[in-house]
Write a protein that binds this DNA or RNA. Structure first.
Length: 491
RNA sequence: CGGGGUGUGGCGCAGUUGGCAGCGCGCGUCGUUCGGGACGACGAGGUCGGAAGUUCGAGUCUUCUCACCCCGACCA
């Protein structure tokens, strides 16, 4: 078989890049740092969107859309917020071009300078809270539960397809509440949704937890995240949910009259997942032959490949395939019959493996004669011949098995690569050799966190919610620690 | 913004001492093939990233410039 991908062992980063390109998910564009998401990649993103969108709506949220441009002055209203984002903002200064003096090309018209420059949104808190001010007067207007699907721009130094690009797609939820408790409840509810989405749809186990002050969103009181472990032992922050307290309400003077007729600032949350989830999905399951997709998010769940020598044989196969297709479609399975005669079966097998299609059916003259189908699953690469009779049940069960199996594999991997560590020496050894999640005690200070980061390149991914809070002593300073936190090298 | 690297057909690359721009893949036509990336024959496709210079002659030498990739610091 012709080798298309760099193997993971050889060079993990290269494997990822190769895979994204070769599986036709995305490519680099003419604009540095910005990607073109290709139809196959976008189809996966659309599936993710559809599921998440429903989850948000089922919990009472509505979609809306706010401008891509933010007046520069808005950004500076919340001090921490502007400090966090100032270094990576694209700024619009002019609104017109003109023909160059020398007749060649086109240039910025200096006479068309904007009075107030516009920032291309790196996130939308400021424009949204400026708007919410007019929407909220009374406790009766609350809670306000809004989400938007949008693109944002963060001018990054170094980019990688899906994992970090200058422009990316995401959803950002922005909610307003009358009490602190309710806002906090919302923040954690969304964290739960993200975790459930990762678990049940992406087949990706995640750690949920609280971010340290260092890693907190600029302008938030508390940031929570879901953290996934990639096959190279590095962590990927896959979603964040922020409790914003009254920071933005105060900055944008968003107040409401409570039941007692008293004026109060509202309580806020914001939360988001981005096309980075695509990167997580790719790295969580895929192998050296290509993408492995969970059936629940695969744009195409089943592909049927005919094997034949003569046109008459193709005709006979086609008749059987029509029957199978109908049964599968009736069972809610997405299926494609690839009867192109421009590619050979072997080529198609390899190509659909590269693209991660969960199940492949092959039908040849032999199958027509015996009333059978060859069924191949992408996750284990195993092939078996099944009777045509009841094929829809066979396939449906198999899709379920695959979804479960890749989750189980990812979970096993995470467990095998999660280490309980008590000494700094051992900590350094593991970060240098294996990577993975390391549960260790930390004294809670920024100084120690930074020292560990400097010396080992590891960061505290989160203070986990799902591990016991047994107390101990900081592995670096020996000071008391109330609970273990999760360290890892991160994307 | 530092360090390293690369720009030659759609993609991946070779191009020696400066002397007719090549190879593999892909693409097109025809034929044989088709149960794990088939094979043969013929064919199409290039102002060698850009500008200036040296030279009888530049893909190759000089200077400038632009772009992209990789590794770091910053980040979802």
């Amino acid at each position: 078989m012709a080798k298309v991908l760099t193997s993971r062992k050889e060079n993990y980063a290269q494997w990822y890049n190769d895979l994204v390109i070769k599986a036709d998910l995305a490519e680099n564009s003419a604009v540095r740092g910005c990607m073109v998401i290709k139809p196959y990649g976008y189809a996966i993103w659309e599936k993710m969107q559809a599921v998440l969108d429903k989850m948000f709506k089922d919990t009472g949220h509505s979609n809306a859309y706010f401008p891509i441009f933010i007046p520069k002055s808005f950004l500076s209203r919340e001090a921490d917020h502007v400090e966090g984002f100032a270094k990576e903002c694209a700024v619009v200064t002019h609104y017109r071009l003109k023909n160059s003096e020398n007749g060649k090309g086109i240039e910025v018209d200096d006479t068309a300078r904007l009075e107030e420059e516009l920032v291309v949104r790196p996130t939308s808190e400021t424009i949204i809270w400026n708007t919410y001010k007019n929407w909220i007067q009374s406790y009766r207007d609350l809670p306000l539960l809004i989400n938007q699907w949008a693109n944002v721009v963060r001018w990054e130094m170094r980019t990688r397809l899906f994992l970090r690009t200058t422009e990316f797609l995401w959803q950002e939820g922005h909610t307003a509440h009358s009490t602190k408790e309710e806002a906090m409840e919302e923040t954690l509810k969304i964290l739960g949704i993200y975790s459930e989405f990762a678990r049940n749809w992406m087949a990706m186990p995640v750690e949920i937890g609280t971010k340290t002050e260092n890693e907190r969103f600029a302008g938030a009181v508390e940031t929570y995240s879901i953290e996934a472990l990639m096959q190279d032992g590095k962590a990927l922050q896959s979603g964040t949910s922020h409790f914003l307290g009254q920071n933005f309400a105060k900055a944008f003077d968003v107040t409401f009259l409570n039941k007692e007729g008293k004026l109060e600032h509202v309580w806020a949350t914001s939360w988001g997942v981005s096309t980075r989830l695509m990167g997580a999905l790719i790295m969580a399951h895929s192998d050296d032959r290509g993408l492995v997709l969970p059936p629940k998010l695969a744009p195409l769940q089943v592909v049927i490949v005919p094997i034949y020598k003569k046109p008459e044989q193709l005709g006979l196969i086609g008749e059987k395939v029509d029957i199978i297709m109908k049964k599968l479609v009736d069972s809610g399975i997405s299926v494609k019959y690839d009867d192109r005669d421009t590619q050979k079966p072997g080529w198609k097998f390899a190509d659909y493996e590269l693209k991660g299609v969960p199940v492949r059916l092959a039908l040849g003259p032999r199958d027509v004669e015996n009333n059978t189908v060859e069924v191949a699953r992408r996750d284990t690469l195993r092939k078996e011949v099944y009777p045509m009779e009841g094929i829809e049940k066979t396939v449906k069960n198999l899709l379920g098995d695959i979804q479960d199996n890749i989750y189980k594999n990812a979970l096993d991997f995470k467990e095998r690569n999660t280490f309980l560590v008590d000494t700094y020496e051992e900590f350094r050894h593991i970060t240098e050799t294996k990577g993975g999640f390391i549960l260790a005690h930390w004294d809670g200070t920024k100084e120690t966190e930074e020292k560990i980061n400097q010396e080992t390149k590891s960061t505290i991914r989160c203070i986990p919610h799902n591990h016991s809070g047994e107390a101990g002593r900081c592995m670096v300073t020996g000071k008391p620690s109330p609970r273990r936190v999760i360290f890892a090298k991160a994307y």
